[in-house]
């Protein structure tokens, strides 16, 4: 019985690979886009314009305060009603990128605010422009604070990508659902699905904790 199931499972490996590929591609694209947009939003949110900062803040709160599943449904099922046709993959990318941007925005804002005001004043006094102050002085110092939670957030987002199976994208989770119809051993199948996610995430978890240690060491070093 178990052998038959295993045999059948092995036969499903092309499907499993496709699922893994989908999860990885979806995560990679939306994390890359989300990081870019998240940094841009973070810089704007920490900037001088109160209106802009307020609007971004409200959006971030809205996204953080609603379930990702609901967001994905809104994008995939409601937008077409308004005349915006999206295929499931694009909808998934948009949903996940938006989610990533919002979480990363908050991490970046916290990092920017952790840079001492004296640093900004020194840069101001030297005549650096707004962008130069960000680029040369603030962001490099903020990065030390930003990196560990950023990598941690990547892990959460990769796991959140499983939600896109709900709109029919054949990612790891959906492959689990498909395989379990053929191989009636949910425990075994979803243990393997879980393992696959873990294999993708674990290097990032290691990286996050290493960065955290390095940050701690760097802080100890800067103490005056």
């Amino acid at each position: 019985m178990i052998w038959q199931q295993l045999h059948s499972l092995i036969g499903s490996y092309p499907l499993a690979l496709r699922g893994l590929g989908m999860t990885v591609v979806l995560s990679l694209i939306s994390l890359a886009l989300g990081t870019l947009i998240g940094f841009a939003l973070g810089v704007l949110r920490a900037g001088d314009s109160r209106t802009l900062s307020g609007v971004i803040g409200a959006w971030v709160d809205l996204i953080r305060g609603t379930p990702f599943l609901v967001q994905i449904f809104l994008i995939f099922f409601i937008l077409p009603e308004l005349g915006v046709e999206l295929d499931a993959f694009t909808a998934g990318i948009i949903g996940l990128t938006n989610l990533a941007s919002c979480f990363i925005c908050e991490i970046v804002v916290a990092g920017i605010r952790a840079v001492p005001t004296g640093q900004v004043e020194a840069a101001l006094a030297s005549g650096l422009s707004r962008w130069q102050r960000m680029r040369q002085v603030v962001l490099p110092q903020a990065m030390r604070v930003v990196l560990p939670p950023l990598v941690g957030q990547y892990v959460l987002l990769i796991k959140d990508s499983s939600v896109v199976s709900a709109i029919g994208l054949t990612d790891l989770t959906r492959v689990g659902w498909l395989v379990v119809q053929r191989v009636p051993n949910g425990l075994l199948v979803f243990a393997l699905v879980g393992l696959a996610y873990f294999i993708v995430c674990y290097p990032l978890i290691l990286l996050a904790s290493r960065l955290e240690k390095r940050l701690g060491a760097a802080h100890a070093e800067v103490q005056l």
């Binding site: 001492p116 640093q119 004043e121 020194a122 006094a125 005549g127 650096l128 040369q136 490099p140």
Partner: peptide, 19 residues
């Protein structure tokens, strides 16, 4: 920004860029 380039400012706490 332009005017500040003509004015050097030295702070009590130095405020060197640590990186």
């Amino acid at each position: 920004t332009q005017l500040r380039t003509e004015i050097g400012f030295v702070f009590q706490q130095f405020n060197l860029y640590p990186h």
